[in-house]
Design a binder for these strands. Structure first.
Length: 683
RNA sequence: GGCGGGGUAGCUCAGGUGGUUAGAGCGUCGGAUUCAUAACCCGAAGGUCACGGGUUCAACUCCCGUCCCCGCUACCA
């Protein structure tokens, strides 16, 4: 089944990069490279396709970054938007438009969608109490509130998370909260928000995803959706109290904007609209005509937005189509560790382009060949080197070079005429004829690794054919035969020049110029494209060997990053001074753990009975990741005995066991050096 | 803990309504070759298909349980 056959046009979107950092190889391997291969292929087949992307520029993290850098949010997104846009262009990601959500057309589009849904009664309204900064006259996002972490006592915990102990919090958990803006204590104030009742759309989602896309969506995507739907969907707020974003198109809603997840996917639509307006094209049919095939390329972190929430918005709006597929990829790791923007553990696209000029396609090749299609995958520089040297260069580049060099050597660069075809010639040519279809099928099923491997098999076919035919041996006695052989080889090269284009666009262009191929259309790529007498140009090398030293330099760079991270992990700053009385208020005792068991349905909690010398009591502690119940029994530990009792997972915990925490977060008990009596005081 | 995805040769991955010797590429080893960027070509070695049970004439493929990795989620006084 050729799925493109049922559609008149294609709308392809790639996840909007968040404009608070540059693009790295994880983004590329997961989203932009596969999407780019997909659209380039469709274009070469003559399909009507638009490839849409842009920067996602709203949301709280950008306002925070702006504050930290003493800039306006607009300045922050301007910087990253141009950096991202520029590096995509240099890399050869062939968007029809790369727009941005801070653009007027987006604000207008997003407002319209909101307004339509509002008028249709698609939202529910709810009032709630939230922290408000009276001095600045604004409600405070979670990250705009700081306070003391109720868990570890860290005084600079944010309203959503304590960065000291990693606990996720809600603003009301914080002890003595203060506004990041004014430093004042925020007050609770009533605020109104609009919610999208996802639960009401469950029947539509069930039918659409669980029934009609059971077999054509990837297992990870389908499974995740099923899980969400089965667990029961909750209404989600679509508005926030913030000034940076798309303002609500309603009366008396000053200081409210669309929540970024509502506004961001609409960015695809706005970008399409902008494209339509600047190109004089009707953009709407790409989003509203059922004969348009909508495909979202995303990473796995985005599944819920693209498969549940955005479709609900589109469906509720009424005039839009739903995606035909959402081929989400897993994650790419780097040299064994998770890619991290904040830890600078990444290969940044703009840096790669500077450091490896002319090697865009090498990265495209490696990222496609090692794309995390079914599970997380690892990028290593050694692998990068091996794939360049042993595959691109040795197989692809080498076959092209052998063929062209021989053509120049024997026939002055003119395509020789094929004589009578032998069985092996016939076989090679017939095998060649199957490649466009084979590669295309894989691309249409989003199996880009396999498609790429097939493309390389074409070069292997050529190498094998050429080696077996041995024209350099027979040229003297049988030049006629050599004509045929090289004709066949040149047809294979011509096919490669076309079929490699979605994967290796720069290389394909170079190769097409080298053999003076005028038209690169997909369907004809399996047949004979070069006619006898056709003059080809000088052969140049398509790839060059990447030396150990080059790779070592990159590895060293990462090692340095790792070193910097370790060194940069500063020791916690000393807390504010406390009085001796504050200290003596704490009653710490030597205690012995008598019993221990895992708290059911938790990952971290151990319930223990300890002998404090004073009594035998229950303590619940989050140490199960580091200690098994049986190995803690009998241990002498330090107990903070007079901490107020607190229920954890329904169990009342009387006190807390003191732990030391390593920089990687692992925990260890504190124990007296000698086995003192239970109840011994600590001071 | 719950839910989802994954665990197949040194590495990256295919595979199958259950059915003779489990596939590919790269790496390794051997051979052949010189047109080619010491590349190509041929051949070989290499896997108890995470582990333990079960169903079956037959399981890597189905069922149950366990372990490990990733994501979402609950939990760290």
């Amino acid at each position: 089944m050729n799925s493109t056959g049922n559609y008149k046009r294609h709308t392809v979107t790639a996840a909007l990069p968040y404009a608070n950092g540059p693009i790295h190889i994880g983004h590329l391997a997961g989203v932009y490279v596969p999407a780019d291969i997909y659209v380039r292929y469709l274009r070469m087949k003559g399909e009507d396709v638009i490839y849409i992307c842009g920067s996602d520029e709203h949301g709280v993290p950008i306002t925070i970054k702006a504050r930290q850098e003493g800039k306006t949010p607009q300045q922050v997104v301007d910087h990253y938007h141009s950096l991202i846009k520029d590096s995509f262009a240099r890399f050869g990601i062939s968007f029809d438009i790369y727009s941005r959500t801070s653009s007027p057309v987006h604000h207008e589009t997003a407002s319209e969608v909101f307004k339509t849904l509002y008028d249709k009664g698609a939202f529910t309204e709810k009032d709630s109490e939230q922290y408000y900064d009276a001095e600045n006259n604004q409600f405070l996002a979670d990250r705009y509130i700081m306070g003391t972490c109720p868990h570890c006592g860290y005084e600079k915990a944010y309203g959503d998370q304590c960065e000291n102990c990693g606990t996720s919090l809600s603003p009301t958990d914080l002890i003595s909260p203060r506004s990041v803006l004014s430093g004042n204590k925020p007050v609770m104030k009533k605020t109104r928000h609009w919610y999208l009742p996802l639960d009401k759309h469950e029947p539509m989602l069930r039918k659409w995803i669980l029934e009609s896309h059971k077999h054509d969506w990837k297992p990870n995507v389908y499974g995740q959706c099923k899980s969400w739907i089965d667990q029961g969907l909750q209404p989600r707020a679509v508005t926030r109290d913030l000034t940076w974003g798309v303002k609500l198109p309603l009366e008396n809603t000053e200081g409210k904007v669309l929540y970024v997840w509502f506004d961001a996917p609409i960015g695809y639509i706005s970008a399409t609209r902008e494209w339509g307006e600047t190109h004089g094209r009707d953009w709407e049919k790409y989003w509203k005509d059922p004969e348009s095939k909508l495909v979202h390329f995303i990473g796995k972190d985005n599944i819920v937005f693209h498969c549940i929430i955005f479709p609900v918005i589109l469906n509720a709006e009424g005039s839009y189509i739903l995606p035909d597929n959402v081929p989400a990829n897993e994650f790419l790791n780097l040299e064994g560790d998770k890619i991290s923007t904040s830890r600078n553990w990444a290969v940044w696209l703009h840096e790669y382009l500077d450091e490896f000029p002319g090697k865009e396609d090498v990265l495209r090749y490696v990222l496609c060949a090692a794309a995390p299609e079914t599970k997380d995958n690892d990028f290593t520089w050694r692998d990068f080197q091996a794939r360049n040297n042993n595959e691109l260069l040795a197989i692809f580049g080498n076959f092209v070079n052998r063929t062209l060099v021989l053509t120049h050597k024997y026939f002055d660069g003119k395509v020789p005429e094929a004589g009578t075809l032998s069985a092996s010639d016939e076989e090679a040519l017939s095998s060649l004829g199957g490649f466009p279809e084979k590669i295309g099928q894989n691309i249409e099923q989003y199996r880009f690794r396999e498609a790429l491997a097939q493309m390389m098999n074409l070069a292997r076919l050529g190498n094998r054919y050429l080696t077996e035919a041995e024209p350099w041996k027979i040229y003297k006695e049988d030049p006629e035969r050599v004509k045929t052989v090289l004709n066949v080889c040149l047809q294979i090269v011509a096919s490669m020049a076309v079929l490699s284009e979605p994967f290796l666009p720069h290389t394909a262009k170079k190769l097409q110029e080298m053999i003076a191929l005028e038209k690169a259309d997909w369907r004809g790529a399996g047949g004979s494209r070069l006619h006898p007498g056709h003059q080809i140009n000088k052969a140049e090398l398509l790839f060059e060997k990447i030396e150990d030293a080059t790779i070592q330099a990159q590895v060293d760079k990462l090692l340095q990053t790792r070193k910097d991270n370790d060194a940069g992990r500063e020791v916690e700053p000393q807390k504010e001074a406390v009085s001796f009385d504050d200290f003596t208020a704490m009653d710490m005792r030597v205690a012995t753990i008598l019993e221990a068991e895992k708290v059911p349905k938790t990952k971290k909690l151990l319930k223990m009975t300890v002998d404090s010398g004073i009594d035998k009591r229950t303590v619940v502690s989050g140490i199960a990741e580091y200690y098994k119940p049986e190995e803690v029994v009998g241990k002498k530990v330090v107990l903070l005995a007079n901490l107020k009792p607190r229920k954890i997972k329904g169990i009342e915990s009387h006190g807390m066991l003191l732990m030391a925490e390593d920089k990687d977060g692992s925990l260890a008990f504190l124990s007296p050096e000698k086995a003192f009596e239970n109840g011994s005081t600590i001071s």
